[in-house]
Protein backbone atom coordinates (compact mmCIF):
# COMPACT_ATOMS: atom_id res chain seq x y z
CA UNK A 1 0.00 0.00 0.00
CA UNK A 2 1.26 3.49 -0.80
CA UNK A 3 1.85 6.02 1.95
CA UNK A 4 -1.02 8.42 2.61
CA UNK A 5 -2.10 11.17 4.95
CA UNK A 6 -4.77 10.23 7.45
CA UNK A 7 -7.20 12.79 8.84
CA UNK A 8 -10.07 12.30 11.22
CA UNK A 9 -12.44 15.31 11.26
CA UNK A 10 -15.26 15.60 13.78
CA UNK A 11 -17.71 17.64 11.70
CA UNK A 12 -19.05 17.11 8.21
CA UNK A 13 -17.93 20.62 7.27
CA UNK A 14 -14.35 19.74 8.16
CA UNK A 15 -14.63 16.47 6.28
CA UNK A 16 -15.81 18.12 3.11
CA UNK A 17 -13.09 20.75 3.34
CA UNK A 18 -10.50 17.99 3.57
CA UNK A 19 -11.77 16.24 0.47
CA UNK A 20 -10.26 17.16 -2.87
CA UNK A 21 -12.43 18.36 -5.72
CA UNK A 22 -10.89 15.80 -8.05
CA UNK A 23 -11.49 12.04 -7.98
CA UNK A 24 -8.51 9.96 -6.96
CA UNK A 25 -6.74 12.42 -4.70
CA UNK A 26 -8.67 11.67 -1.53
CA UNK A 27 -10.83 8.82 -0.31
CA UNK A 28 -13.49 8.60 2.38
CA UNK A 29 -12.96 6.00 5.08
CA UNK A 30 -15.93 4.56 6.95
CA UNK A 31 -15.83 0.80 7.67
CA UNK A 32 -12.87 0.43 5.35
CA UNK A 33 -13.86 -3.09 4.30
CA UNK A 34 -13.64 -2.11 0.64
CA UNK A 35 -11.23 0.83 0.74
CA UNK A 36 -8.45 -1.17 2.35
CA UNK A 37 -8.55 -3.80 -0.40
CA UNK A 38 -8.72 -1.15 -3.12
CA UNK A 39 -5.64 0.54 -1.70
CA UNK A 40 -3.72 -2.69 -1.20
CA UNK A 41 -4.47 -3.68 -4.78
CA UNK A 42 -3.34 -0.23 -5.94
CA UNK A 43 -6.70 0.38 -7.63
CA UNK A 44 -7.07 3.65 -5.73
CA UNK A 45 -4.07 5.69 -4.61
CA UNK A 46 -5.28 8.50 -2.38
CA UNK A 47 -2.77 10.93 -0.99
CA UNK A 48 -5.20 11.55 1.86
CA UNK A 49 -7.74 9.34 3.60
CA UNK A 50 -10.57 11.11 5.42
CA UNK A 51 -12.04 9.12 8.28
CA UNK A 52 -15.70 10.06 8.83
CA UNK A 53 -16.42 7.75 11.76
CA UNK A 54 -15.64 10.50 14.28
CA UNK A 55 -18.47 12.69 12.98
CA UNK A 56 -21.21 12.19 15.56
CA UNK A 57 -24.15 13.26 13.41
CA UNK A 58 -23.40 10.58 10.81
CA UNK A 59 -24.08 7.83 13.32
CA UNK A 60 -27.14 6.06 14.61
CA UNK A 61 -30.44 4.62 13.52
CA UNK A 62 -33.83 5.99 14.56
CA UNK A 63 -37.43 5.30 13.69
CA UNK A 64 -40.72 7.02 14.23
CA UNK A 65 -44.07 6.02 12.73
CA UNK A 66 -44.52 9.54 11.39
CA UNK A 67 -41.04 10.28 10.01
CA UNK A 68 -39.98 6.78 9.13
CA UNK A 69 -36.47 5.43 9.38
CA UNK A 70 -33.25 7.40 9.54
CA UNK A 71 -30.04 5.51 8.94
CA UNK A 72 -26.82 7.35 9.70
CA UNK A 73 -24.21 6.84 7.00
CA UNK A 74 -21.73 5.35 9.45
CA UNK A 75 -24.23 3.13 11.28
CA UNK A 76 -23.01 -0.42 10.84
CA UNK A 77 -24.80 -3.27 9.15
CA UNK A 78 -24.86 -5.04 12.50
CA UNK A 79 -26.62 -2.05 14.07
CA UNK A 80 -29.16 -2.22 11.26
CA UNK A 81 -29.79 -5.90 12.00
CA UNK A 82 -30.07 -5.31 15.74
CA UNK A 83 -32.65 -2.53 15.46
CA UNK A 84 -36.12 -3.87 16.39
CA UNK A 85 -38.05 -1.28 14.34
CA UNK A 86 -36.06 -2.10 11.21
CA UNK A 87 -36.82 -5.79 11.62
CA UNK A 88 -40.49 -5.05 12.23
CA UNK A 89 -41.17 -2.55 9.47
CA UNK A 90 -38.49 -3.12 6.83
CA UNK A 91 -37.83 -6.88 6.57
CA UNK A 92 -36.39 -6.55 3.06
CA UNK A 93 -33.53 -4.46 4.49
CA UNK A 94 -32.79 -6.98 7.21
CA UNK A 95 -32.91 -9.88 4.79
CA UNK A 96 -30.54 -8.03 2.46
CA UNK A 97 -28.06 -7.36 5.26
CA UNK A 98 -28.26 -10.98 6.44
CA UNK A 99 -26.98 -12.00 3.04
CA UNK A 100 -23.63 -10.56 4.08
CA UNK A 101 -22.70 -13.69 6.01
CA UNK A 102 -19.62 -12.35 7.75
CA UNK A 103 -19.94 -10.94 11.26
CA UNK A 104 -16.63 -9.15 10.73
CA UNK A 105 -17.89 -7.33 7.65
CA UNK A 106 -21.23 -6.56 9.31
CA UNK A 107 -19.46 -5.20 12.38
CA UNK A 108 -17.23 -2.89 10.37
CA UNK A 109 -19.24 -2.23 7.22
CA UNK A 110 -21.52 0.79 7.19
CA UNK A 111 -24.78 1.79 5.52
CA UNK A 112 -23.06 4.50 3.51
CA UNK A 113 -20.21 2.21 2.65
CA UNK A 114 -22.56 -0.44 1.35
CA UNK A 115 -23.98 2.13 -1.05
CA UNK A 116 -20.66 3.68 -2.08
CA UNK A 117 -18.48 0.57 -2.36
CA UNK A 118 -16.87 0.04 -5.73
CA UNK A 119 -17.81 -2.73 -8.19
CA UNK A 120 -16.23 -6.14 -7.74
CA UNK A 121 -15.62 -6.59 -11.50
CA UNK A 122 -12.35 -8.53 -11.70
CA UNK A 123 -11.04 -6.41 -14.52
CA UNK A 124 -11.68 -3.23 -12.51
CA UNK A 125 -9.96 -4.76 -9.50
CA UNK A 126 -7.00 -5.76 -11.70
CA UNK A 127 -6.50 -2.15 -12.70
CA UNK A 128 -8.24 -2.05 -16.09
CA UNK A 129 -10.68 0.66 -14.99
CA UNK A 130 -14.43 0.77 -14.47
CA UNK A 131 -15.07 0.19 -18.15
CA UNK A 132 -12.51 -2.61 -18.27
CA UNK A 133 -10.78 -1.84 -21.51
CA UNK A 134 -7.32 -2.92 -22.56
CA UNK A 135 -4.77 -0.59 -24.12
CA UNK A 136 -6.36 -1.02 -27.55
CA UNK A 137 -9.74 0.07 -26.21
CA UNK A 138 -11.51 -3.26 -26.53
CA UNK A 139 -13.79 -4.40 -23.73
CA UNK A 140 -12.21 -7.15 -21.71
CA UNK A 141 -15.63 -8.05 -20.34
CA UNK A 142 -17.14 -8.73 -23.75
CA UNK A 143 -14.17 -10.71 -25.01
CA UNK A 144 -13.07 -12.25 -21.76
CA UNK A 145 -14.77 -13.96 -18.86
CA UNK A 146 -18.06 -12.30 -17.95
CA UNK A 147 -19.67 -14.98 -15.82
CA UNK A 148 -20.38 -12.51 -13.01
CA UNK A 149 -21.21 -9.46 -15.14
CA UNK A 150 -24.39 -7.59 -16.04
CA UNK A 151 -27.41 -9.11 -17.75
CA UNK A 152 -29.47 -5.92 -17.70
CA UNK A 153 -28.43 -2.40 -18.58
CA UNK A 154 -25.49 -3.99 -20.35
CA UNK A 155 -25.59 -2.10 -23.63
CA UNK A 156 -22.23 -0.69 -22.62
CA UNK A 157 -19.81 0.76 -22.11
CA UNK A 158 -20.11 -0.46 -18.49
CA UNK A 159 -20.75 -4.13 -17.76
CA UNK A 160 -19.98 -4.46 -14.05
CA UNK A 161 -22.73 -5.10 -11.55
CA UNK A 162 -23.62 -2.80 -8.70
CA UNK A 163 -22.48 -4.57 -5.54
CA UNK A 164 -24.72 -2.89 -2.97
CA UNK A 165 -26.71 -5.28 -0.80
CA UNK A 166 -29.01 -2.61 0.65
CA UNK A 167 -29.73 -0.43 -2.37
CA UNK A 168 -32.42 -2.61 -3.99
CA UNK A 169 -34.36 -2.76 -0.72
CA UNK A 170 -33.91 0.96 -0.07
CA UNK A 171 -35.16 1.76 -3.56
CA UNK A 172 -38.13 -0.56 -3.11
CA UNK A 173 -39.01 1.40 0.06
CA UNK A 174 -38.61 4.73 -1.76
CA UNK A 175 -35.65 5.87 0.35
CA UNK A 176 -33.73 9.11 -0.18
CA UNK A 177 -30.11 9.92 0.44
CA UNK A 178 -28.91 13.05 2.15
CA UNK A 179 -25.61 14.26 0.79
CA UNK A 180 -23.43 17.03 2.18
CA UNK A 181 -20.93 19.03 0.16
CA UNK A 182 -19.34 22.46 -0.18
CA UNK A 183 -22.69 23.88 -1.21
CA UNK A 184 -24.57 22.38 1.71
CA UNK A 185 -27.05 19.57 1.91
CA UNK A 186 -28.95 18.02 -0.96
CA UNK A 187 -31.27 15.05 -1.21
CA UNK A 188 -31.51 12.47 -3.93
CA UNK A 189 -33.69 9.38 -4.20
CA UNK A 190 -31.56 6.28 -3.80
CA UNK A 191 -32.94 5.17 -7.15
CA UNK A 192 -31.36 8.17 -8.88
CA UNK A 193 -28.08 8.03 -6.95
CA UNK A 194 -26.63 5.30 -9.14
CA UNK A 195 -25.57 5.85 -12.74
CA UNK A 196 -24.08 3.89 -15.55
CA UNK A 197 -20.78 5.64 -16.31
CA UNK A 198 -20.21 6.52 -19.92
CA UNK A 199 -16.54 7.39 -19.67
CA UNK A 200 -13.67 6.24 -17.51
CA UNK A 201 -13.69 9.64 -15.81
CA UNK A 202 -17.20 9.18 -14.42
CA UNK A 203 -18.15 7.48 -11.20
CA UNK A 204 -20.94 4.96 -10.89
CA UNK A 205 -22.91 7.20 -8.51
CA UNK A 206 -24.09 10.77 -8.19
CA UNK A 207 -21.52 12.10 -5.78
CA UNK A 208 -18.93 14.80 -6.22
CA UNK A 209 -15.39 14.03 -5.02
CA UNK A 210 -15.88 16.40 -2.09
CA UNK A 211 -19.34 15.26 -1.08
CA UNK A 212 -20.25 12.63 1.50
CA UNK A 213 -23.39 10.63 2.10
CA UNK A 214 -24.63 11.62 5.55
CA UNK A 215 -27.87 9.70 6.02
CA UNK A 216 -30.53 7.59 4.42
CA UNK A 217 -34.20 8.44 4.97
CA UNK A 218 -36.75 5.71 4.49
CA UNK A 219 -40.44 6.73 4.42
CA UNK A 220 -42.78 5.25 7.02
CA UNK A 221 -44.26 1.97 5.89
CA UNK A 222 -47.68 2.47 4.30
CA UNK A 223 -50.55 0.41 5.64
CA UNK A 224 -50.77 -2.94 3.91
CA UNK A 225 -47.13 -3.02 2.83
CA UNK A 226 -45.36 -6.35 2.62
CA UNK A 227 -41.75 -6.62 1.56
CA UNK A 228 -38.90 -9.07 1.19
CA UNK A 229 -35.49 -9.68 -0.31
CA UNK A 230 -34.37 -12.93 -1.92
CA UNK A 231 -30.75 -13.56 -2.71
CA UNK A 232 -29.21 -16.30 -4.84
CA UNK A 233 -25.72 -16.89 -3.53
CA UNK A 234 -23.36 -19.68 -4.55
CA UNK A 235 -21.72 -20.16 -1.17
CA UNK A 236 -23.53 -20.15 2.11
CA UNK A 237 -20.38 -18.58 3.57
CA UNK A 238 -19.56 -14.98 2.64
CA UNK A 239 -19.98 -14.63 -1.08
CA UNK A 240 -21.14 -12.04 -3.57
CA UNK A 241 -24.71 -12.77 -4.60
CA UNK A 242 -25.30 -13.90 -8.18
CA UNK A 243 -28.68 -12.17 -8.23
CA UNK A 244 -30.99 -10.56 -5.72
CA UNK A 245 -34.43 -9.01 -5.72
CA UNK A 246 -36.12 -6.75 -3.22
CA UNK A 247 -39.84 -6.11 -3.43
CA UNK A 248 -42.27 -3.90 -1.56
CA UNK A 249 -45.95 -4.43 -2.29
CA UNK A 250 -48.89 -2.51 -0.87
CA UNK A 251 -51.80 -4.90 -0.63
CA UNK A 252 -55.40 -3.83 -0.53
CA UNK A 253 -57.98 -6.52 0.13
CA UNK A 254 -55.62 -9.16 -1.23
CA UNK A 255 -54.85 -7.25 -4.40
CA UNK A 256 -51.64 -5.40 -5.17
CA UNK A 257 -52.31 -1.68 -5.08
CA UNK A 258 -48.74 -0.64 -5.79
CA UNK A 259 -45.49 -2.51 -6.22
CA UNK A 260 -41.77 -1.88 -6.28
CA UNK A 261 -39.50 -4.59 -7.65
CA UNK A 262 -35.76 -3.91 -7.67
CA UNK A 263 -33.07 -6.33 -8.79
CA UNK A 264 -29.51 -6.33 -7.51
CA UNK A 265 -26.22 -7.71 -8.83
CA UNK A 266 -27.56 -7.85 -12.37
CA UNK A 267 -26.81 -4.41 -13.83
CA UNK A 268 -24.33 -1.56 -13.36
CA UNK A 269 -27.00 0.03 -11.17
CA UNK A 270 -29.63 -1.45 -8.87
CA UNK A 271 -32.31 -2.31 -11.41
CA UNK A 272 -35.92 -1.29 -10.75
CA UNK A 273 -38.34 -3.15 -12.93
CA UNK A 274 -41.46 -1.21 -13.89
CA UNK A 275 -42.36 -4.17 -16.12
CA UNK A 276 -42.58 -6.45 -13.11
CA UNK A 277 -44.46 -3.80 -11.17
CA UNK A 278 -47.06 -3.50 -13.93
CA UNK A 279 -47.46 -7.27 -13.97
CA UNK A 280 -48.34 -7.17 -10.27
CA UNK A 281 -50.57 -4.14 -9.83
CA UNK A 282 -54.24 -4.98 -9.60
CA UNK A 283 -53.58 -8.70 -9.22
CA UNK A 284 -53.89 -11.12 -6.36
CA UNK A 285 -50.47 -12.66 -5.96
CA UNK A 286 -50.37 -16.29 -7.01
CA UNK A 287 -47.43 -18.38 -8.16
CA UNK A 288 -48.44 -17.63 -11.74
CA UNK A 289 -48.65 -13.88 -11.11
CA UNK A 290 -45.28 -13.89 -9.37
CA UNK A 291 -43.81 -15.89 -12.23
CA UNK A 292 -45.30 -13.47 -14.78
CA UNK A 293 -43.74 -10.55 -12.91
CA UNK A 294 -40.39 -12.36 -12.81
CA UNK A 295 -40.59 -13.07 -16.52
CA UNK A 296 -41.43 -9.43 -17.19
CA UNK A 297 -38.49 -8.26 -15.09
CA UNK A 298 -36.04 -10.27 -17.16
CA UNK A 299 -37.69 -9.73 -20.54
CA UNK A 300 -34.94 -7.45 -21.73
CA UNK A 301 -32.07 -9.34 -20.14
CA UNK A 302 -29.23 -10.35 -22.40
CA UNK A 303 -26.33 -12.73 -21.93
CA UNK A 304 -22.83 -11.45 -22.58
CA UNK A 305 -21.71 -14.98 -23.36
CA UNK A 306 -20.94 -16.61 -20.05
CA UNK A 307 -23.55 -15.06 -17.77
CA UNK A 308 -26.79 -16.30 -19.32
CA UNK A 309 -27.44 -18.42 -16.25
CA UNK A 310 -27.84 -15.24 -14.22
CA UNK A 311 -31.04 -14.46 -16.14
CA UNK A 312 -32.61 -17.59 -14.71
CA UNK A 313 -31.24 -16.82 -11.24
CA UNK A 314 -32.60 -13.29 -11.32
CA UNK A 315 -35.98 -14.55 -12.43
CA UNK A 316 -36.05 -16.97 -9.51
CA UNK A 317 -34.96 -14.21 -7.14
CA UNK A 318 -37.83 -11.95 -8.25
CA UNK A 319 -40.46 -14.66 -8.00
CA UNK A 320 -39.24 -15.88 -4.63
CA UNK A 321 -38.97 -12.35 -3.23
CA UNK A 322 -42.58 -11.66 -4.23
CA UNK A 323 -43.77 -14.93 -2.76
CA UNK A 324 -41.76 -14.41 0.40
CA UNK A 325 -43.15 -10.89 0.88
CA UNK A 326 -46.72 -12.09 0.56
CA UNK A 327 -46.23 -15.21 2.69
CA UNK A 328 -44.33 -13.51 5.49
CA UNK A 329 -46.57 -10.45 5.33
CA UNK A 330 -49.58 -12.68 5.90
CA UNK A 331 -48.19 -13.93 9.22
Amino acid sequence: MRAFEYVSPTTKEQAVALLASKWGETEVLAGGTDLLALMKDDVVRPRRVVNIKEIAELRGISFSPRAGLRLGATATLEELLAHPDVARHYPALVQAALGITSPQIRNMGTIGGDLCQRPRCWYFRAGFGLLARDETGRSLVLEGDNRYHAILGNEGPAYFVNPSSLAPALIAYGARLRIFGPRGTREVPVERFFRIPQTEAEREYDLQPNEIVTEVLVPPPPAGMVSATYEVRHREALDWPLATASVALVLDGGRVRSARVVLGQVAPIPWPSPEAERALVGKTVTTEVAQAAADAALQKARSLGKNGYKIQLARVAVRRAIERAVQEGAR
Binding site: R235, E236, A237, L238
Partner: peptide
Protein backbone atom coordinates in the same frame (compact mmCIF):
# COMPACT_ATOMS: atom_id res chain seq x y z
CA UNK B 1 -16.38 -30.12 -5.79
CA UNK B 2 -18.56 -27.03 -5.44
CA UNK B 3 -16.44 -23.90 -5.62
CA UNK B 4 -12.78 -23.91 -6.58
CA UNK B 5 -11.50 -22.94 -9.99
CA UNK B 6 -8.38 -21.13 -11.11
CA UNK B 7 -10.08 -18.94 -13.68
CA UNK B 8 -7.73 -17.91 -16.47
CA UNK B 9 -8.78 -15.09 -18.74
CA UNK B 10 -8.56 -16.00 -22.40
CA UNK B 11 -7.92 -12.35 -23.33
CA UNK B 12 -5.22 -11.31 -20.87
CA UNK B 13 -4.04 -14.79 -19.94
CA UNK B 14 -4.12 -13.75 -16.30
CA UNK B 15 -5.78 -15.43 -13.39
CA UNK B 16 -8.99 -13.49 -12.82
CA UNK B 17 -9.66 -14.61 -9.27
CA UNK B 18 -6.36 -14.42 -7.35
CA UNK B 19 -8.14 -13.42 -4.13
CA UNK B 20 -10.32 -14.95 -1.46
CA UNK B 21 -13.51 -13.37 -2.81
CA UNK B 22 -13.69 -15.12 -6.13
CA UNK B 23 -11.35 -18.01 -5.49
CA UNK B 24 -14.07 -19.56 -3.41
CA UNK B 25 -13.33 -21.93 -0.55
CA UNK B 26 -16.04 -23.71 1.37
CA UNK B 27 -16.95 -22.06 4.65
CA UNK B 28 -18.23 -23.96 7.64
CA UNK B 29 -21.81 -23.24 6.61
CA UNK B 30 -21.18 -25.02 3.31
Amino acid sequence: ALFEEKILDPVTGRMLNPNMEFYKLAGLAD
